[in-house]
Design a binder for these strands. Structure first.
Lengths: 359, 359
DNA sequence: CTGTTAGCGCCTTCAA
DNA sequence: TTGAAGGCGCTAACAG
């Protein structure tokens, strides 16, 4: 936050005409100068910019939008902003947008099995945003189509859609990396604690390859890593819990009640992995001596707990998606079909929750 | 998200004139009918609304703003959206705003000691929002003044300002309640693990009573509860750490290295309290047998860990603040000086991290 | 209760 | 490189 230039805050909002009059030019020239259009003499531009600042003039966004048809606003659609991944993506996106003078309009949805879903009618977005960034919101093909109908660029982060720009992880690779880390330490009996693919997902959407769900991808990675090691997991080695620490804890008790011989667990997220640790502690299983745990995310508190994890940087996902979305909005840039699926880097962080199995 | 009424999504945006023509009325009547103004015959209104829906007409926000001077948008200012308290407040506020047709525009600030601070120039808010909600952003008097200069209603959540509507906790009471819980169990030597009052706070602002910082209030509560029990805390009983679990862990080691005789610790937040637990575990101190811990917040993961806490509901703070802010914008409502400081309820949740001291 | 008519403040051709 | 002028789509007086 900075102070007004010289403490002058005009009681009535100035219009472009005031600036034009003061600078001795036409309103058209002021408009061009303030937008830094090339067809303005440097001297003129400097004078106009100077007058505008001195007067404390700010362009009226509504008037500019009405006249130009552009809003310089991006809609951020998300089911939750109060979860680690989502909050960080939104943070990264908002800062990237603000840096180039774009506004971020927030729309939270209610997910769930309700029909019709509560939440935003895509039509409220019409004429309100120049682009849409969907953060981790699993959408059916029909829902995606209704957004695409808005006729503004569309991008996804986290969970995506094959026809549209999507910034996400290679979730299969993530599940595989976590599992291979345990395999490499000598584990053979490796369970998987996961969460329901987000509720509200249209049945069949995933199967048809039209969208993407991190939990499903990571589970598939766990499966293939085991398969490549010649291991056929017992169906009960995979348990589903509610998202979060408590869900991870409950799921782990269920898992270990049925399969106490497991020596390692791959959790779908760090939060659930922390639940695994708590359950282990409650069962007097020492970590990592009697049970190894790997999470995914790289949340801060994992460091204090010594949690081994596959870390990601969701803030950069938000930034990258925002920047690509802005590029999509530039008519001069040809939209290359080729790079619609952006896979972000992840990094295995080995800490104290994994070790060679003792049994 | 709902589907377009009948799958018709006009390729060109309709204007109010199209609706007027189709309904056989003037544009003024359409405007009135769609805004549900009283001066429209019910029959006419129904017909207009019906035509508008059938055509898939959506009002242009820019045109409406330009003509009316109102944007139906609230600016949400916050330093972080990726922390528990902030994310939940914003979530609650956004949903409350959306429910009455208002948009939420997100502005994240960088806090810190930089001068001038990075972040938003308040002037970008001019003519862009009808009201401003500041979430947990500690502002100097000058900064508050520059926001107030925008001449739109202003409200604070979490950290506030005595001259403006503020929705927050009774943080002194919170610190007191946590401490009194331990005193009631028989503890006498009670430490306090806290975090720096947010960086960027203007020096002297708190002392002058012009704004409010949760850490400072909670510490004061801890102090007064001890004082009332006739206990004079050693200066070293209070340690400051970085915000978060890791900070709580480090601060606790520092605290217990110097004062191993402490039997209880009041942490400024649940996250820091979890750091206390980790440190205790690392020192082979059993919780609660050898050390009791109380946090503040009521985060979800505290349940799985059995953390005793003073819980709050930040989502409702966001909702309440948004609703009051909207009320402030209604010219018909007289703004009562009396209820500018809204104190939200908190609740002591006793779990397994506190017990009578054994020494 | 409804229609007519000015703007709201800016952008963007078109001409100069 | 600059200016003049017509909208952009809607709201809010004012009339009727």
């Amino acid at each position: 936050m900075t102070e007004p230039s010289r403490g002058e805050s005009p009681m009535v909002a100035l219009s472009i005409e005031d600036v034009a009059a003061e600078a001795g030019v036409s309103t058209a020239t002021v408009s061009r100068a303030l937008r830094d259009l090339p067809s303005v003499a440097p001297k003129t531009r400097d004078r106009v910019v100077d007058v505008a600042r001195r007067l404390g003039y700010v362009v009226s966004p509504s008037a500019a939008s009405l006249a130009s048809g552009r809003t310089r606003t991006i809609g951020l659609l998300t089911p939750w902003i109060n979860r680690w991944f989502f909050g960080n993506v939104i943070d990264g996106a908002e800062r990237a947008l603000r840096a180039v003078g774009y506004d971020a309009l927030l729309y939270t949805f209610n997910l769930g099995r309700e029909h019709p879903r509560l939440g935003v009618d895509p039509r409220v977005l019409r004429r309100r945003v120049d682009g849409i960034l969907v953060v981790g919101l699993p959408l059916s093909r029909k829902e995606v189509a209704s957004l695409a109908d808005l006729d503004v660029p569309l991008a996804f982060v986290g969970t995506g859609h094959e026809d549209h720009l999507t910034v996400r992880l290679d979730d299969v690779g993530v599940g595989r990396a976590a599992t291979e880390h345990l395999l490499g330490l000598g584990h053979r009996r490796i369970g998987h604690v996961t969460a329901e693919p987000e509720a509200g997902h249209a049945p069949g959407a995933l199967e048809a390859g039209h969208s993407w769900s991190p939990p499903l991808g990571r589970e598939q990675g766990w499966r293939s890593a085991l398969a490549e090691a010649g291991i056929v997991p017992h169906p009960g080695w995979r348990v589903v819990g509610a998202f979060g620490m408590e869900g991870g804890r409950a799921a782990t008790h269920e898992l270990l009640d049925a399969h106490p011989d497991l020596t390692g667990i791959v959790a779908v997220s760090d939060e659930m992995a922390m639940g695994v640790s708590i359950a282990a502690q409650e069962r007097d299983l020492a970590i990592p001596d009697q049970l190894s745990v790997v999470g995914v995310d790289g949340i801060n508190s994992g460091k204090a707990l010594g949690l081994t994890t596959i870390s990601q940087d969701p803030e950069s996902h938000g930034r990258i998606a925002a920047e690509l979305l802005l590029r999509l909005m530039d008519p001069e840039v040809e939209y290359a079909q080729s790079d619609k699926q952006i896979l972000c880097a992840t990094h295995l962080v080995v800490r104290r929750s994994t070790a060679a199995p003792s049994r």
